[in-house]
Simulated assay, not measured.
Amino acid sequence: MTTSERPLRVAVVGAAGWAGSRHARAFAKAGANVTHLVDQDERAIPLAQELAAQVVPGVQELPADQLDLVVVALPTTLQPPICADLLDRGLRVLTEKPVAADTEGAAIMAVASGVHDRLMVGYTLHQHPAVEILSQWVHINDVIVVNVRSVAHKRTIDSWRADPKEGGVAVVNGIHAIELVSSWLDGEPHVSATRANSSLYGSPVPEHVLATLEFPSGAVFTLQSYWSPWREPQGLNQGDWSLTIDVLAAKGRMVLSNDSLRRWDRDGGQHEQDFEPSDLFLRQAEAALRFCAGHKPAVTFAQALRATESADAIRADAVRTAAASGTPEVPARDPHRNP
C-alpha cells in the first residue's frame, strides 16, 4: 500500500499536556492515524485508548520506519534536542512554537539533518482564514506601523511557564505576533524600547511586555503581550487568547480582532468580514499533513529563527532598561545554563 492510499501515521510527544492532547485529537480528526503517544504521565492512557494509539515512555521507542510525522509539544527548553534527534533519524517533525526559547537552543536545531526541509514550526496564526487575507493585504501595501495586543487568559502562572529559562510571556505568547509580523517585513528589526513587568502574578518571569521594534523599511511594530487573570468576552483558542492586530499603511488600514476583520481604504471605502471561530489546531494538522505530502511548511526553521532572535533582543533590552532605571523587574538569564 502506498502512502497516498493509507492514512498518514503520526506520533505525538508530550501528549498528556494541553497542547499535546489538542494536537493528537486534531490529527485524528484530520484523517491521520495517531499510532504513538510519547509521555510518562498517566493522563496519556485514556487519550491513547480514545485514539487506539500505543503509549511509549520516550522518543527512542518510536519506530522511525513506521511513522510519517512526529509532533513535539513540550516546554520550549526541552524541544530542541528532541527535535534534532528526530530529524537526524530521518523523520518529519512538527514542533510547537517557538523553535526554541532562545538562540542558544535554536543552535541545537540548526545543525540537525534536514532542518530546512523536514521541520515545520507550529505557528497556528498562519492557519486562521482572516490572517491569510490580512497577510495578502500587507504584502501589497507599504506598511507604516503594526500595533499588536496579545492577551492570554491564565488563572495562575506556574509549572513550566514560571521557569525563567522559558523566557516569560514574550516567548510563550507574544512570539506568535513577533513571528507573523517578521514574516511580513524584510530585514532584521531593531528593538528601540522595551518594558517588562512581573507584578500581575508575582512570578519570576516577565508577565507583561511592551516593546517597540523598527524594521529597515521604516515600519514600526509595537507589541503589548501579557497573561491576564481576567477572561475576555471573545478570543481565539476557545476564548483563552484575545488578539488584535492593527496595520496602518499608506493606502489604508486593516484591523484583525480575533475572528473579525475590518478594512478602511484611502478612498473612504470600508469593508467588514466576520469568521466562524476556527479550530487552529485542526487547520494546522491539515497543513502538516500536506507538508508530509511534499508541500512547503507553513513556517520554516529560518522564519521561526527570526522570531526567536527578535524575542531574545526584546528580552535583553528589557533587562537593560530595568537595570538602568534601578528597578530590576525582570530576572536576567543565566548565560551559563544548559539551554
Results as ranks from 00 to 15, higher is better:
residue 4 S to M: 13
residue 5 E to N: 14
residue 11 A to I: 00
residue 12 V to C: 12
residue 12 V to I: 14
residue 15 A to F: 02
residue 16 A to Y: 00
residue 18 W to M: 11
residue 23 H to W: 09
residue 24 A to V: 03
residue 27 F to G: 01
residue 31 G to M: 01
residue 38 V to Y: 03
residue 39 D to K: 12
residue 41 D to R: 09
residue 42 E to N: 10
residue 46 P to M: 01
residue 46 P to F: 03
residue 47 L to E: 00
residue 52 A to F: 09
residue 52 A to P: 05
residue 55 V to K: 03
residue 59 V to N: 02
residue 63 P to N: 05
residue 65 D to S: 13
residue 66 Q to S: 13
residue 66 Q to T: 07
residue 69 L to K: 03
residue 78 L to I: 01
residue 79 Q to Y: 06
residue 80 P to T: 07
residue 80 P to L: 05
residue 80 P to A: 07
residue 83 C to Y: 10
residue 83 C to G: 08
residue 83 C to W: 08
residue 86 L to D: 11
residue 87 L to T: 02
residue 88 D to G: 10
residue 91 L to T: 04
residue 94 L to W: 00
residue 99 V to C: 14
residue 99 V to K: 13
residue 108 I to L: 14
residue 109 M to G: 02
residue 113 S to M: 04
residue 114 G to H: 05
residue 114 G to N: 06
residue 116 H to I: 12
residue 118 R to K: 10
residue 121 V to K: 02
residue 123 Y to I: 01
residue 123 Y to P: 03
residue 129 P to Q: 01
residue 132 E to N: 15
residue 133 I to C: 13
residue 136 Q to D: 14
residue 138 V to Y: 12
residue 139 H to M: 13
residue 141 N to R: 13
residue 142 D to Y: 12
residue 143 V to C: 08
residue 146 V to W: 00
residue 148 V to Q: 13
residue 153 H to M: 11
residue 155 R to D: 14
residue 156 T to W: 04
residue 160 W to L: 15
residue 163 D to P: 08
residue 168 G to D: 06
residue 168 G to P: 06
residue 169 V to C: 03
residue 175 I to L: 05
residue 175 I to F: 01
residue 178 I to F: 07
residue 180 L to K: 01
residue 181 V to N: 03
residue 182 S to Q: 10
residue 183 S to E: 13
residue 184 W to Q: 05
residue 184 W to H: 03
residue 185 L to K: 02
residue 192 S to V: 13
residue 194 T to F: 11
residue 195 R to A: 12
residue 199 S to G: 07
residue 200 L to H: 09
residue 201 Y to E: 04
residue 204 P to A: 05
residue 208 H to V: 08
residue 209 V to C: 01
residue 209 V to T: 04
residue 210 L to K: 12
residue 212 T to Y: 02
residue 214 E to M: 13
residue 219 A to W: 00
residue 221 F to H: 08
residue 224 Q to E: 12
residue 225 S to K: 01
residue 228 S to W: 04
residue 229 P to E: 06
residue 230 W to F: 15
residue 234 Q to C: 12
residue 235 G to C: 08
residue 246 D to I: 01
residue 251 K to M: 13
residue 261 L to C: 00
residue 263 R to M: 11
residue 265 D to T: 15
residue 266 R to T: 15
residue 274 D to M: 08
residue 278 S to N: 10
residue 282 L to N: 07
residue 282 L to T: 06
residue 283 R to E: 15
residue 285 A to H: 09
residue 288 A to D: 10
residue 294 G to L: 11
residue 297 P to F: 11
residue 308 T to C: 03
residue 310 S to I: 08
residue 312 D to W: 05
residue 313 A to I: 00
residue 325 S to D: 06
residue 325 S to L: 06
residue 326 G to C: 01
residue 327 T to W: 11
residue 330 V to Y: 07
residue 339 P to R: 01
